[in-house]
Simulated scan of single mutants.
Amino acid sequence: MGNNYFSIIIPIYKVENFLEKCINSVLHQTFLKYELILVNDGSPDKCGVIADNFAKKDHRIIVIHKSNGGSSEARNFGLMKATGKYVLFLDSDDFWDDIDALQKLHIALEKKNSDILIFGCKDFDAQRKEFVSKKTEFDLSIFQKNKKEIVEYLLKNNMFPGAAWILTVKKSILTNNNIQFRIGVKAEDIEWLISIFIYAQKIDATNEFFYVYLKNRQNSITATPDSKSILGILHAIDSWKLKLKSEKSPLLSFLQYQYFIAIMILNNKNLENRKLIFSELKKHKDLLNISYSYTTKAKLLASFIRFFGLLKSSKILAYVYKKQKAN
């Protein structure tokens, strides 16, 4: 494993205007026991050159050049090279705004030898040029309890991680359980997150909010949900629903929320294979069971969709979401 405590993996594709800021936010860290793995996913712009130039100046940087295969494949390539005790992901148009971020994570991880450590993020609107999200701090006393109670707390308070980059995970959890990102879909984080929470035993959090997520970036490949987004959700449901139901896992609530999102995306006019996707979504209507819901909003959504049906609900939900986003 060497001297690397962290392996930081950045998949790169068509972000030449953002990449230097992203990389520098890691290189400026006061904690030095890390490796930075830059995976150039066949980017057609100057990203590959930028990555190579950084690597020439810092021995901690590893650059992987590969043909374009998507974010999931790029992350998996990075994981194959990773030697750190813990793994962190950073999207190449985002950045960290605290030079002591890794130092603070290291201190927190050493206290409990956690399998997962969740931290916070701030949303920065690229169009409005301002931060648009509020910090919601964790009740850290909850993380002294058992895993089921911790997961229930996260779900009830809308704090369950929605992306791989909002936590650090022990690499042995990934390697011992062969956990990788599913290739060829969007929403790949869903299945990955369920997997690590299933296999991890020690879950902790810190009230450090250093991850800056860039919202509403022009030409962002994740900005428009499509068929691949729904397929990612359906893969997660197919992989985990029966197991989570049999174990009466609180993670069913997380899966249910993703099902709501898939129903909303169904209204996308440019959706490919709409009939097939609709048919697949109908197979999982059991996820509308309100006993899986941990919040009032989720219970209302489940009841709403059961009453109006998938297609009509999709139109209404998409309309409401569009209105909220405009405001």
Rank of each mutant, 00 (worst) to 15 (best):
G2A: 10
L271Y: 14
K148P: 02
K33S: 13
M80W: 12
L102S: 11
A101E: 12
D93H: 09
G162N: 10
S253N: 15
K46N: 11
I316W: 10
I198Q: 13
N207M: 07
C47V: 01
K325T: 12
N17Y: 15
K322C: 08
L109T: 14
L167R: 04
D238V: 05
Q180P: 00
V63Q: 01
I116T: 05
D204R: 01
L90I: 12
I233L: 02
L140W: 02
A205P: 08
L105V: 11
G84P: 00
I198F: 06
A163I: 09
I99C: 06
L140Q: 00
E16H: 02
K283P: 01
L32P: 01
V15L: 05
K170Q: 09
E110S: 15
S293Y: 11
L271A: 09
I61N: 10
N267W: 00
I198A: 06
I10Q: 00
A82C: 06
S133A: 07
F95H: 15
S227I: 13
K245M: 11
E208R: 10
L154I: 09
L38C: 04
N146S: 14
D94F: 13
L38D: 06
I61S: 00
F304P: 01
S67I: 13
A326E: 07
K323P: 01
K81T: 05
I194A: 03
R274G: 01
L266I: 00
S220W: 06
S291P: 05
P225V: 03
R60A: 10
E149L: 13
H284S: 06
N68C: 09
N178C: 05
K285W: 12
L244Q: 07
L288W: 07
Y294C: 15
R182I: 08
S249A: 04
E73G: 05
L174K: 08
I10G: 08
I198E: 13
A302W: 00
N273T: 14
N270K: 07
Y86L: 08
T295Q: 03
K248E: 15
A318D: 08
F54Y: 01
Q103L: 14
M1F: 00
L102I: 12
K147T: 05
L301I: 07
Y13Q: 04
A51T: 12
